[in-house]
Simulated scan of single mutants.
Amino acid sequence: MRNWRARTAAIAVVSALALVTACSSENEDEGSGGSSGGTSGGDSGSPASELSGSLAGAGASSQDAAQQAWMAGFQDANPDVTVTYDPAGSGAGREQFIAGGVAFAGSDAYLDEEELAAANERCGGEVVELPIYVSPIAVIFNLPGVESLNLSAETIAGIFNQQITTWNDDAIAADNPEVELPDTAITPVNRADDSGTTENFTDYLAAVAPDAWPHEASDVWPVEGGEAAQGTSGVVQAVTSGEGTIGYADASQASGLGTVHVGVGDQFTEYSPEAAAAVLEVSERAEGRGEHDFAFDLARETTEAGTYPIVLVSYGLACAAYDDAATADLVQGYFNYILSPEGQQAAADTAGSAPLSADLSQQFQAAVDAIGSAA
């Protein structure tokens, strides 16, 4: 189960509301009509081409590459629509969405109880929360001459808790007997900003290696010292520019660095989209949420072969009802494209994410179909 940390209650409007400039008169008359939002099943065909206007979102930087692919594909099918996405981070995205500053958001962690209540209030009803982006979190390092290492959960935790401080430590050497390890000092690199990637990574450590990681899951890095960097790109840059550095980042941005094969059961598993998706398939939906809220408690402790448990499940946040019918149509149309096979494949090709299974997509489609207008 996920460990919760109380987040700051103060929320400021930091971005202008997504403005919709125009829609067809037929759609305005229909109010909640999903006809212009794309047909059920994520079809981005001719009905979606009637859409026009502007739609703004913000949130997880891990989604940035996928969002760029989704925006390009959706806008290609809907040339009169402009979609923007500010990769300001999960915490900022949730704050902006709850404050009404953006029409949709991306978050690498599902809403906690306090945030969920605030989001439902903003929406005037139920929030829609869907896993739209599934990707492994790669443990990346920069150690000249070493491209990959086997590390158990306890060893990873010991490194990031700064209890294992050199690369030739016995715990690392034991799982890598054929690797010549230097006595180089280890420099852990963590996110400086509130981060859903951090929360997913620390959730894994707390669940699988509690003795070596005596901290709760948190989107704020809990260990003092080391090196901190802003955003996913900042962590990757800090690891790349150092020597003996180690960090964690969405696998889509791990190219060119050494990566860790993670201990799962009695095997070591290399990250891959398929291995990440396998974890979601064996996880259970969180209890006590709304009908259109698909938050999952991830099975971090799984020992099933072929699974990679350091996985990031990044959510799309929307309202089931918007005050403005045109905004509802645009959000529904965009989320239809994201869930479609075409949209999921575009993200996979661009960001290396795992396409949702047909079964999961079908479950989530009902929530997208419910997006409409309160007018």
Rank of each mutant, 00 (worst) to 15 (best):
P182T: 13
W70V: 00
S36K: 03
I186S: 15
P341I: 04
E199P: 03
S46T: 10
E154L: 09
N142S: 09
Q63W: 04
D293I: 12
A318Y: 05
P131N: 10
Q75G: 02
I186P: 13
P188V: 12
Q332I: 03
N336A: 04
G263Q: 15
G91D: 13
A12P: 02
M71T: 13
V262Q: 06
S373L: 09
S272T: 05
A16E: 06
A367P: 06
T197A: 08
S62D: 05
A69K: 02
Y308F: 11
A375L: 12
Q332D: 03
V134T: 06
A354Y: 01
T350K: 01
A16Q: 05
A12W: 09
E270M: 08
A65C: 00
S90A: 11
G41N: 00
L143Y: 10
T307D: 03
E284L: 12
S283P: 08
L51Y: 00
Y133K: 02
G42L: 01
S54E: 07
S25Q: 08
V102L: 04
S32Y: 10
S15D: 08
G34R: 13
A72L: 10
I11T: 15
L51S: 04
I137Q: 06
V81L: 10
G288R: 10
L143A: 12
D324R: 07
I137W: 03
S361V: 02
A326Y: 11
N176P: 11
Q75S: 04
A229N: 03
W213Q: 04
I186W: 15
T84A: 08
Q365R: 02
A65E: 03
V236N: 05
G33P: 09
S90F: 12
V282D: 05
L312F: 05
D108R: 07
D219Q: 13
I156W: 09
P131E: 08
S353Y: 00
L360V: 09
A171S: 15
P182H: 12
S54R: 06
H292Y: 14
G196I: 09
A66F: 08
G45I: 00
V236L: 05
V311W: 07
S148L: 07
D76I: 04
A16T: 03
G242N: 05
I159N: 10
I338L: 13
Y334G: 00
A326P: 08
A351I: 02
V139K: 11
G37W: 00
G244D: 03
L19M: 09
T187Q: 09
T155R: 05
D108M: 08
E121T: 14
A354S: 07
V189P: 09
P222Q: 04
A321K: 14
N3K: 11
Y308C: 04
V146M: 13
A354D: 01
N150P: 06
D293C: 14
G343F: 00
V139S: 14
S353K: 01
T302D: 08
E227L: 14
Q344E: 04
G256H: 04
E291G: 04
N120V: 14
P273Q: 03
C23W: 08
S373V: 10
F294I: 07
R94I: 15
G158L: 08
H215K: 11
D211F: 07
D64A: 00
A173P: 01
Q67D: 10
A325E: 12
A209N: 02
S61Q: 02
C23Q: 13
P87V: 01
L149A: 11
A325F: 11
L280P: 12
V81K: 07
W167V: 15
G101A: 06
T240H: 02
L19H: 06
G225L: 10
A375N: 15
V128D: 11
P87R: 02
